Simulated scan of single mutants.
Amino acid sequence: MKKIIIITGLSASITLSLFAFMAFLISNDQVKLVLLPDHVPINIVSLPEDKPAQIKVRPNLNPPPPPPPMPITRVTPNVGEVNTDFNYTPPEIQQTGGSLSVLSLGNKADGEARPIVRVNPKYPIGAARDGIEGWVVLVFDINAIGEVINISIVDSQPKRVFDKAARQALKKWKYKAKSIDGKNISQQKLTVQLDFTMAQPS
């Protein structure tokens, strides 16, 4: 019972203390009143007048006309005279190593090989331009079907001027192969001379 009385007394004293403190605060509180002026200043801002819309002209996007064509200057070149007048006589062909006759023996023909296709060599351009003449001696074999094989240069004059042309021409020759008892056989070591001569214009 004493505890209740003591607690109640403490509570009452604390409550009174709080009320007294609040009254003190209220009495010392200074409230400042803000007085509004009689005339409130009003700032009037004038807006700029609306301007009429400006019409912009679109730029001309078309390309400019092309410039006039440049005049064509024609220049006639000076061409030096080149003397190309010459008559080419195909080289004379001399063959050794066998007779060209064909013997007829009944139904079987025997005989030495004989050419059936001859190709003239091309005159080298440099030699024709310089008016050079000469000859080439070649040795070759003929196989059983008449082809020219194993070509070699024996001699030539001038050296190495007409060798290539002579070799290329002889390689294209075709022969009727030598036959014995109607059977074709090959031949070796046949010799031919190709002469390169130029007939001068009259």
Rank of each mutant, 00 (worst) to 15 (best):
K3S: 13
I6F: 12
T8Q: 01
L10I: 06
L10Q: 05
S11F: 15
S11I: 13
I14R: 08
L16K: 07
S17T: 13
L18P: 01
L18V: 07
A20G: 05
A23P: 02
A23H: 04
L25K: 13
N28H: 12
D29P: 00
V31A: 03
L35V: 11
P37M: 00
P37K: 08
D38Q: 04
V40N: 09
P41Q: 14
N43T: 12
P48N: 08
E49T: 11
D50E: 14
A53V: 09
A53G: 02
Q54W: 04
Q54G: 02
Q54K: 04
K56C: 03
V57I: 15
R58N: 15
N60G: 04
L61S: 01
P63K: 07
P63A: 01
P64V: 10
P69I: 04
P69Q: 11
M70V: 14
I72D: 12
I72K: 08
T73L: 13
P77N: 10
N78P: 00
V79W: 11
E81W: 12
E81P: 04
N83A: 14
N83E: 14
T84R: 14
N87M: 09
N87G: 09
N87H: 13
P90V: 10
P90S: 11
P90Q: 08
P91L: 02
E92Y: 07
I93T: 07
I93R: 04
I93C: 01
I93M: 10
Q95V: 13
G106S: 08
N107H: 14
K108S: 10
D110L: 05
A113R: 02
R114A: 02
P115I: 06
I116C: 06
I116Q: 08
V117M: 13
V117E: 07
R118M: 15
N120M: 15
K122A: 14
Y123Q: 04
R129Y: 10
I132P: 00
G134C: 08
W135I: 04
V136R: 01
I142F: 00
I142C: 03
N143M: 07
N143Q: 09
N143V: 03
A144I: 10
A144F: 06
N150Q: 12
N150F: 04
I151L: 03
I153F: 02
D155P: 01
S156W: 03
Q157E: 08
K159L: 09
F162S: 02
A165D: 07
R167V: 10
Q168K: 12
A169Q: 05
A169F: 03
L170T: 05
K171G: 08
K172Q: 15
K176P: 00
A177T: 00
A177E: 01
S179R: 14
I180H: 01
D181S: 08
G182T: 10
K183Q: 15
N184C: 02
S186M: 00
Q188P: 01
T191S: 05
V192M: 09
T197I: 04
M198G: 03
A199C: 00
Q200Y: 11
S202V: 08
S202T: 07
